[in-house]
Write a protein that binds this DNA or RNA. Sequence first.
DNA 1: AATGCGGGGAA
DNA 2: TTCCCAGCATT
Length: 344
Amino acid sequence: MASFSSTLLSWHETIQRELPWKDNPNVFHIWLSEIILQQTRVEQGIPYFLKFRNRFKTVKELAECSDEELMKLWEGLGYYSRARNLHKAAKLIHDSGGNFPDTYEGLKALPGIGPYTAAAIGSFAYGLPVPVVDGNVNRVISRIFGIREGIDTKEGKALIEKTVEQVFDKEKPAAFNQAIMDFGALFCKPKNSDCNSCVFNDDCYAFQNEMVSELPLKVKKIKKVNRSLNFAVISYRGKILIKKRIGKDIWRHLHDFYELTADGGINEEDFSAIDYKLDGIQGPIKHVLTHQNLSITFHNYEAQKLILKNGTSYFLVERENLRKFAFPKAFDWYFDKNSIYLKY
DNA sequence: AATGCGGGGAA
DNA sequence: TTCCCAGCATT
């Protein structure tokens, strides 16, 4: 039988996948795309990549971008710590002369860059002989070579890594890595993979043993909690009260409104002075996160008098400027329903 | 080793 | 509904 790599690379010749970060390959664009694509489908990430590529021509420009603008650009993409780490890394690179690290360890030392991303950037930008292991690779390798350990366990990860090392093509790191991920994404898919026309089917453990639907094996289950969120949208003279979420909680570094406790109202001690009346309730709406099922209700308040406390983290924003700030995707429902758009 | 962290697409 | 996606940081 031909080698795994030659079979894989021959298959890769038969497909074409045009991706914008390959337009004019450079380490800045490769890095940017890899961060954006973490736990994110290529189709979902592309518009964000284009937006970032257009806004930032250099690492320096990214490093000098304000936090507010960066979060606004990332708004809606999820896993917002990626944006924060991207920014941190840009500053580190800029402060140390503007050059990216060109070793695996150097890359992995940057915030937001773990084993996968270091291997991806290293191989794609510098031709370093390091194999990537992402969700696609886990699937392809565990099926073809019959890895029956949980890919989310220490043993399973070690087995996958060892197996990839054995079939990896050190002469063509970038081509191999690209090909195996494309193979996983376009052919050896989680469901409905066309095994009958697969170039590996004669040697595929999962296909030969009718275990395609069972591999890769995942052991750990995510437990979800139900959670209610209640926000008071307090309007005062055409402005709306918001704050930045800074706690160790969901949507960190995005903004929200005054948060009400379970069945409590506005705590007047949060303000120097406040006089208000309820002006309707909207919701609840359901919003799903990986670990939480959210039920969100918006309580509209109109304030006749409002004096903020000294040192408070709340601030008032003109209604038409509200969308200049980054908010959770779930708030789109409220903004749409109340015709709150960014006025240009 | 376990947990937290978004949002969307596919079946 | 359930699963998964070019994962990583924190505890």
